[in-house]
């Protein structure tokens, strides 16, 4: 009897711990383009917006993003996985803050600081694929710790020009 009670107790606690789910935010919702995201970092959510959604078809667009850093970002690496039907079909990674060269302002920020980026983003791929898919994005630092993590749901039927 005691054992089963303890087990249930632990299960309830685990349920409480694991049930932290961040809400889904909308980045774009237009006729041909919908982008939503949800933070997959259990510790925190963050904000992100794109200034003019159809601009993503031009490969360079302005974004604003804000997060509170849980870890320092002496170095910062981004890794994107494009997932279609549960399968990773494309991966893309880039160094945002490399060791010894901090070309971006926020490089070198420490734990607890406010990270705010407002500016252009240029994609390393020719065009954003059309269709329905998920993009899983992860930012990691010099210790390979996840600084931020998000799953983007994209429904893209924009025409490229």
């Amino acid at each position: 009897m005691k054992t089963s009670n303890a087990l249930l107790f632990i299960l309830v606690l685990l349920y409480i711990n694991a049930s932290t789910q961040w809400p889904t935010h909308t980045v774009c919702k237009e006729d041909n383009l919908e982008i939503y995201y949800k933070s997959c970092d259990p510790q925190q959510d963050f904000t992100l917006s794109i200034d003019h959604c159809p601009d993503i078809a031009t490969h360079t667009f302005n974004i604003r993003g804000t997060a509170v850093l849980r870890h320092s970002i002496k170095e910062l690496y981004v890794k994107l996985n494009m997932i279609v039907n549960g399968r990773t079909v494309l991966t893309y990674s880039e160094t945002l803050c490399g060791p010894g060269h901090s070309k971006l302002i926020f490089c070198g920020k420490k734990k607890g600081e406010h990270l705010h980026y407002e500016g252009p983003v240029t994609l390393g791929i020719k065009e954003i694929p059309q269709g329905d898919y998920t993009i899983s994005a992860k930012l990691t630092n010099q210790d390979h710790v996840i600084v931020a993590c998000a799953d983007f749901t994209v429904k893209n039927y924009l025409d490229y020009y």
């Binding site: 009897m1 089963s4 009670n5 107790f9 309830v12 606690l13 711990n17």
Partner: peptide
């Protein structure tokens, strides 16, 4: 008490726990 039947008290405690906010847990 019958084996397997949860006493009412325990059930209440568990229910309460399920609804406590995360930081408290």
């Amino acid at each position: 008490p019958k084996r397997g039947a949860l006493p009412l008290g325990t059930l209440l405690v568990l229910l309460l726990l399920a609804f406590v906010p995360f930081p408290l847990s």
